[in-house]
Nucleic acid binder design. Structure first.
Lengths: 345, 345
DNA sequence: ATGAAAGCGCTAACAT
DNA sequence: ATGTTAGCGCTTTCAT
């Protein structure tokens, strides 16, 4: 057997203890993760300083798997998202991380593009890699059962979705319908009769609540939204751009477009401009989400969305579950939406 | 309050063993993470099936911290990024995850907006939460020392940066200068003499290599790029949009703009359109990065960037380090850039 | 104010 | 082909 290069083992708590001339117990109390307060009542200042000096001297770093195994807790939270590339994800992650950090926890993000990956990521929590998860995956409606399974296995979860019911986990939803209806009323009041919809998926089978809301409200006005006016692109700026250009090239194009996302709507404005059309005169555009970019586009984008999106309560929902073993109740948090008419309509 | 949360304990390997009527060792071999091949030579099919049945029956799930502690390995990799919201991050994360998955590893993302957070995240690897890290943080130049420190502590790392030297870790850089110079030549050949630059930071102190390359090449043509032609916005679509509109409102605006990012360049095209200017006639625009969106804008965006960005070698660099304890050499991987002239210039 | 000792759940060297 | 056994590094009683 060839000589295995002796991997220098990193120092353990025992090394710190012997360097400082104290017991491992004392070192543990001095370093004690989130419960540092306990150490104060137990360890003298002189001892603590000696321990810290030893830590620095030998370059000790706690072994997290060992700590997690013993504590049966990680102080880490997973944020599961189906993509990264919109301003929304960045904002959400930043806000959640801030709250978690204040409670002594950290955040890791796992991208879950498929149901199998979502299953896998929740399995990671189940396996003790994190204490809980916040789930932000768009096509999660079909995953009600998956979430319930993990909830039964005592995985603390908060999901952000309008198409799922709390059942062992909390749900954060947006009260979108009134704002979307107001947007439709607004378009109709401005004389639009042929309104296209930019959808997240082109799949007519996939339920898209925003499309349903628009359809329903149009019906209320005696108007219909035909299937051939539903275009793909809400999820991708480039697809949206192409969709709108194709659409505007048709013989009798719609006079307005309602996009299920702001990024799609912004691409729509720009696609119209690129073909020499005037927004809102040749094409009126409404988006969803009210992202910051709405205000700086020209013309400014009318959008249905949360007015000042504050996602910190989402993190607090999860923290409540983490701090309360056998958290008793399911909660539903409703983030209010409004319609904000601007120059694009 | 009980010191240890009275969480109903989840089943362990011992429970599976007694249910299946075998020893814990056998269960361990059947479940053995990445080394499943070893199990084949040891466990009979009948036994394996009995074990798997027991696993399903009692809902067993491996305890990852315990496994990591024992194995001294996690099969997990951290991707550290300073932000999420551009198409680049999405693409990078997806490609890396694919390669890691094929080698039986998983990927978590940690957002590191500050040097302190980068330190903290690398500390997580050091603490045994992951086996290594891929670092994609723009302002990492000042962190050479930090990376060297962790490299000395045997943290396997690959960094993506043009302003850092490999030293105990690998560096992936882009050979940007020739492509950028070609872009400048192209603009000059088309008669542009007053060229603005859209920079990542507005801070004139922060070194921006792309700006330096543009400046240098302009000097070669006897032209200068004055400080008041450097505008902020490459990092943010909205800021870019505002910058260009302000710029075009000046008495004697530049006739071309070179953006350090494609997203900034796209916003520039759009800002020009919004003011009734024609691209490329009133304003020529060049971006950096060659993202997919370049091809679908109108006019299509000229861009200096990688032609078909393949980021999988980045993951392989790290895997080599993970698979080879005391990895001997530092490597530098150069991703070639080209200038791709399109309709925007 | 500090230490001794008993595991947390798992893996792997060493039996058999 | 399967079992025994000795820890991995840490936290937390309980004792002093």
């Amino acid at each position: 057997m060839p000589a295995t290069p002796a991997r220098r083992k990193s120092p353990t708590i025992a090394d710190v203890a012997s360097t400082a001339g104290v017991s491992a117990t004392t070192v543990s109390y001095v370093l004690g993760g989130r419960r540092g307060d306990l150490a104060a009542s137990r360890i003298s200042d002189a001892t603590r300083e000696r321990v810290m000096a030893a830590v620095d001297a030998i370059g000790y770093r706690v072994n997290e798997p060992a700590r997690s195994l013993r504590r049966n807790r990680t102080d880490r939270v997973l944020l599961l998202m189906d993509r990264l590339s919109s301003p929304y994800e960045q904002h959400l992650a930043g806000m959640i991380e801030g709250v978690l950090e204040a409670s002594g926890r950290s955040l890791s993000i796992v991208v879950c593009t498929t149901a199998a990956r979502l299953d896998n990521a929740l399995g990671m929590v189940r396996a003790g890699l994190a204490d809980g998860a916040i789930v932000q995956c768009r096509d999660i409606a079909g995953q009600q059962h998956l979430l319930e399974t993990y909830a039964r296995e005592r995985v603390p979860m908060v999901t952000i979705s309008n198409s799922i019911e709390p059942n062992g986990f909390d749900v954060v939803c947006s009260d979108e319908t009134p704002a979307i209806e107001e947007a439709v009323d607004h378009l109709v009041a401005r004389g639009h009769r042929s309104i296209a919809f930019l959808a997240h998926a082109h799949d007519p089978e996939a339920p898209e609540a925003r499309l349903a809301a628009v359809r329903h409200r149009l019906l209320h006005h005696g108007l219909t939204l035909a299937d051939d006016l539903v275009w793909p692109g809400a999820r991708d700026r480039t697809i949206a751009f192409a969709s709108i250009r194709t659409m505007l090239g048709l013989p009798d194009p719609p006079t307005a477009v309602f996009s299920a996302s702001d990024t799609g709507a912004i691409s729509a404005i720009w696609a119209a401009l690129s073909m020499g059309r005037q927004v809102p005169f040749d094409l009126a555009v409404v988006g969803c989400g009210n992202i910051d970019e709405c205000l700086v586009t020209v013309p400014a984008l009318s959008s249905a969305g949360p007015v000042q999106p504050d996602f910190t309560p989402i993190a607090r929902l999860l923290i409540d579950r983490l701090d309360t073993p056998d958290y008793p109740k399911d909660r539903r948090l409703v983030l209010p939406w409004e319609f904000l008419p601007r120059q694009s309509t």
